[in-house]
Design a protein around this nucleic acid. Structure first.
Lengths: 347, 347
DNA sequence: CTGAAAGCGCTTACAG
DNA sequence: CTGAAAGCGCTTACAG
């Protein structure tokens, strides 16, 4: 817990406001005003000061009340998925003596102004944003204050300067699809998630790559897009099972959707795995207890949370990070929801 | 968000170190040394200063770095159960401008010394402990500093001075059991949780009360105790189903256990609800998607978290709390895992 | 819009 | 052991 010297640029000791003022050719109070977002500073001055702040990686000296905080922001807390990530982040934070401040954005993908202001007041050591995005402005506010940001499963095109953590989604998609191919399936559907989210897109691309490699034609009818909840899988699953030539296997973008497919099958009187094979994605704990236990692609969620936290701590220390994207390995977990296609139904 | 005046002794405005020094007839630096436990102060002076500090209820001025914090402590983060509670606490904290600091005690039920020290340094507005207990010493440390504590689902005999929040567990147990009785069941088992936990005990008592009221004899063989996880329900369920005279219905202490009973039934070739009715407790989101959708007793977990947070905030404001225990209503949610006993198997 | 000056509450040398 | 003084880094009036 020693206050590590961040080896930023040319700095030997921590810069004070006066140091910054000297470099920027202004007075201390002016720098103070810029830092606190007060009015009464010309745009030109503000810009100059901000660029010096950024250049020197200025961080306000830690006062006696300072609480070492790691911010953890979720777009929503609604699935076991979130819980595992929290555990991972919490573990690393605890080891580093950081308190985890948890925020939920009630489904929004970008935190609001009110949150940003409060968060900035907390002067966190770093920010881990899960399945969400900060605006460019918010990112630059963090940068100005030397607060590192790491995104776990980015929802938008990640600006390349923001480091991110995720799983090998593409490989996971390949592994799931190849498993179904190996079992003898040829008519394999995939329930997709919103394609603007890179993790969803990567899983679909993996699915396609595996089919291509196996020289199986890709039928666009077999890749419906729906929300990443049980409802999405249920809706897409019902549609797929009503097709004139229904799939013999369905791969889903997450476990929740797979549960929806289970329900669709139940309603249609289709047995899993005898009539239909299902593969999920995530390996949330309930999958091993679903009926039947689910074959799924495991994401190491706890480790992903821990990795994101470690990354952000390293950045806060000023360590140079060469990789802007870390991907942890996914693993195919084979249980009882997959089997060779039945002679009767398969083509 | 105005800094509320905490109604301490005779204090009008916050005392500074200089104020204390004046009263004690010493200099500021001497008070500073006493406060920071530095050497170089005679025992007599130290004592005099300390008594003045206590008399005036000196609290170090909230520096510019002070963070308004609500501590949320979990014994473990492992079920959807925890997530809903977090949501409720988080919502109230956000409305009050408090940052939620989340701690997990990796399965322990009492936080360790290291945590306590750090928590105290954070000078939180209040502490919400979920399914856990603080030691008497920890409780008194909080009391000395005027930091209120509220326990959600206490794990031990709640010391009556600690306010707690929970659900109407007893009524929930009655409702579940009465539902099964109304369907015609007479041989009704209950998978219990550890009996030292009041919430588990209350559910069992409700079960017994309902059976008593219906003049159904209570068979001790039908109330096995096991852990509150799927494994517990599976183990207890298998044992119950192997009984010479097995139950026609099983009520469980939580949804996870019910899922375990589902699995036990599946393995035994027992159909739900045709051959066996099952009622869970909690109404976690997966229950509506389990096969079949589960009849369960709903606990308003989000509201319970919110209530605990509101209570702790009210206490921090110095409001007098008359009730030391708040119970939110449970509701029976009837789905498809319960049905009248089949003629063939029922007595 | 900007800066010199005073102020914040505490801590740190330093001198006795 | 103790206190007057200087210092900490930042913020706050205030004057221009």
């Amino acid at each position: 817990m020693e206050p590590e010297q961040r080896p930023g640029r040319r700095r030997q000791r921590d810069m004070t406001i006066e140091d910054i003022a000297r470099v920027a050719g202004v007075s201390g109070p002016t720098v103070s005003r810029v830092l606190n977002g007060k009015s009464g500073v010309s745009a030109a001055t503000r810009q100059r000061v901000e660029s010096v702040l950024r250049e020197y990686g200025y961080r306000r000296q830690e006062g006696r009340d300072h609480l070492a905080v790691l911010e953890l922001v979720f777009h929503a807390l609604e699935s076991l998925w979130a819980l595992d990530i929290i555990c991972g982040v919490e573990r690393v934070a605890r080891e580093r003596g950081l308190a985890v401040v948890l925020t939920e954005m009630q489904g929004g993908f970008t935190p609001g102004r009110a949150w940003t202001e409060r968060m900035l007041e907390r002067r966190p050591t770093g920010v881990v944003a899960v399945f969400s995005e900060l605006t460019v402005q918010q990112q630059s506010q963090l940068a100005t204050r030397g607060i590192p940001l790491v995104v776990l499963d980015p929802t938008g095109e990640p600006l390349h300067q923001t480091p991110s953590v995720g799983a090998t989604n593409w490989s996971g998609g390949v592994a799931a699809t190849r498993h179904l191919l190996d079992l003898g399936h040829r008519r394999i559907a995939m329930v997709c998630g919103p394609q603007e989210w890179p993790c969803c897109r990567a899983r679909l691309d993996g699915y396609r790559a595996a089919l291509d490699a196996a020289k199986v034609e890709i039928d666009p009818e077999l890749t419906p897009v729906d929300v990443l909840y049980v409802e999405g899988g249920l809706r897409a699953g019902e549609r797929l099972l009503r097709l004139p030539d229904p799939p013999t296997a369905i791969f889903t973008t997450n476990d929740l959707q797979a549960l929806g497919v289970y329900e669709a099958a139940r309603r249609a009187g289709v047995r899993i795995p005898q009539d239909l094979s299902v593969v999920g994605f995530d390996d949330l704990s309930f999958t091993q207890w679903s009926g039947p236990p689910m074959t799924t692609v495991r994401q190491p969620l706890v480790e992903m949370g821990a990795t994101a936290a470690e990354l952000v701590v390293a950045l806060a220390r000023g360590e140079r990070i060469t990789h802007t994207r870390v991907e942890l390995a996914t693993t195919l977990v084979v249980r009882e929801s997959t089997a060779p296609p039945s002679r009767g139904r398969a083509i």
